[in-house]
Simulated assay, not measured.
Amino acid sequence: MRTTPDRIRHAISFEVIGLLLVIPLGTIGFGIAAQHVGVIALVASLIATLWNYLYNLLFDRALKRWTGTVHKTVVMRIIHAVIFELGLLVVTLPLIAIYLGIGLWQALVMDIAFVVFYLIYAFAFNWAYDRIFPLPDTA
């Protein structure tokens, strides 16, 4: 399993790179001022960073118990990313609606766009992260 410093490096690098990508894409895609996309993305990022650490720790422990290893197959990476994003959606949806003063339906559409982006990004980032910082064979 990964160490606490490695998990912290993972979570912070994931969120920083994600913000650098999502703010300009959100501004272009939604036609909303960058500062509004930035506030939404930053608050969601802070929530996601905490959720990321806790979720990955719990997921790895469960995976190790069920399969005997924390190495993830492609299918397991997809499941991992989908469950993570669904958990985050539950928290961020009302925050987006309140902050932008929009209805839940509009916030859901916006949140789904963020989820789709982050699903693809999470899959690619985690795959790359495991290649750059591989798990020990004993994991």
Rank of each mutant, 00 (worst) to 15 (best):
S13Q: 12
I12L: 15
D60M: 06
S13D: 05
A122D: 08
V37G: 01
L108T: 13
H10D: 05
G87A: 09
P134E: 00
R131T: 11
F114Q: 13
F59Q: 07
L104K: 11
L19Q: 11
G18E: 00
Y121S: 01
L119C: 06
Q106C: 06
G31P: 05
V115W: 12
D137V: 13
E85T: 02
P136F: 04
H71A: 10
R131V: 09
R61D: 10
A48W: 02
L19K: 08
M76H: 10
T92F: 13
I12A: 08
L50A: 15
R2G: 02
P24M: 03
V22G: 07
V16A: 10
V115Q: 13
V16T: 10
Y118H: 14
R61M: 14
I102D: 01
I98Q: 14
V91A: 11
V22Q: 13
A11T: 12
W105N: 09
K72P: 01
I120D: 04
D6H: 14
I47W: 13
N56F: 12
A44Q: 07
Y53K: 02
D6S: 15
L57F: 12
I96R: 05
L21H: 06
Q106L: 14
A107M: 07
L25H: 09
P134A: 00
R2V: 03
N56W: 05
Y53F: 12
T27L: 02
E85I: 02
T27V: 07
T67P: 03
T3F: 03
L108W: 13
W66V: 11
V109A: 12
K72L: 14
G18D: 03
L50V: 15
I28F: 14
L95Q: 09
Y129L: 01
I78R: 05
V115K: 05
L42P: 02
G87S: 09
V74E: 08
L63K: 07
T49K: 08
L135D: 05
G26Y: 07
G87R: 08
G18Y: 06
I83W: 10
I8P: 02
Y129M: 00
A113E: 11
A81R: 01
V22I: 15
K72H: 08
V82P: 05
A97R: 08
Y129H: 01
L54C: 08
V115M: 13
V37H: 07
F30K: 01
N126G: 15
S13K: 03
P136I: 06
R131P: 03
P94V: 08
V74M: 09
V39P: 02
D6M: 08
